[in-house]
Design a protein around this nucleic acid. Sequence first.
DNA 1: TAGGTTTGTTTCAAACTTGAACCAAGGCCA
DNA 2: TGGCCTTGGTTCAAGTTTGAAACAAACCTA
Lengths: 172, 172
Amino acid sequence: MTTRWLTPDEQRAWRAYIAASHLLEDAIDRQLQQEAGMPHLYYSILAHLSEAPERRLRMTDLAERTKITRSRLTYAVTRLEKDGAVRREGCPSDRRGSIAVLTDAGTALLERTAPGHVETVRATLFDHLTPEQVRQLEEMFTGVARGLQGGSPGSVPPEELPWRRRSSGPCA
Amino acid sequence: MTTRWLTPDEQRAWRAYIAASHLLEDAIDRQLQQEAGMPHLYYSILAHLSEAPERRLRMTDLAERTKITRSRLTYAVTRLEKDGAVRREGCPSDRRGSIAVLTDAGTALLERTAPGHVETVRATLFDHLTPEQVRQLEEMFTGVARGLQGGSPGSVPPEELPWRRRSSGPCA
DNA sequence: TAGGTTTGTTTCAAACTTGAACCAAGGCCA
DNA sequence: TGGCCTTGGTTCAAGTTTGAAACAAACCTA
């Protein structure tokens, strides 16, 4: 089949998306670097931990939720551990595993910096969207994410699809 | 003022957006790394050059269009130059300036790899969107980008807004 | 239960990004 | 003209990301 090129509408949408998402990530990274001393990704790691039961998650679980690779997470957690925001514990039920735990200092940092972060997200993104667009945004990107995770990254044949990691739970 | 926290709708939209945009960038980076031997950003640089008159642009101009910092661009162009996809030329009218020029090899690489790239963008993004959503996407992100570029990065006061770089033109 | 495979995580080197500092060259103006 | 501020680009060190390889524990299965 010959290439299905993008239509002019799609072209424009793609460009706008790429431009805005770069600018947005940069703005948020800068703000968090200033206020929290860490890039957005690291902040997200803390945020995800803070919502988990007992503020702890298996590394792989955390990697999945934050949508990053394991090695990237290892590096990040090591840094956050140095900062004192996270602590690592071994997993008693599976001695291969290690668990990242949000410390009290990490919790405090999150509470201190969350308002500024939210304000930035608002100012950069949501202040430009109507409530209807917010709903659209969620719908679109939920679909896109579903298409991408746990399978068919691009054009991988469906044979490889039925792969799904078992949810490892709080490991306890 | 107390923090304007995100509404549940906004929360969900934000999470979906973050997750999908990470997955999307990863997928596209992987595909281009495979097929073109370079990450998406580098490919974009070539793409932008290919559309410029005479396939050449001032560094700063190129940085603006690709939405990246100058130092990042310097690094990228140096690499692309080593690959032979880009050549640097001095700017005759302003001896501070340097111009990135897309070489024939760069053009060939672009032509060879564009179909695969477009196919990936389609499979990962546009195949999940209705034509109406495509229009919405463009509208939303155009607004967001406008809000972010050339001013008010987050919560910078309007005093700093009226900054606008003069479009330097093809320089020649 | 030994051997082979899978799974969870880390490690390592190479590539990339960041932000501040630097170096020209251009512009402005007394 | 001589300073002085601005602009266009690069450089440098420190930090981050990548992908492949290494490990170790868990899980088969014969």
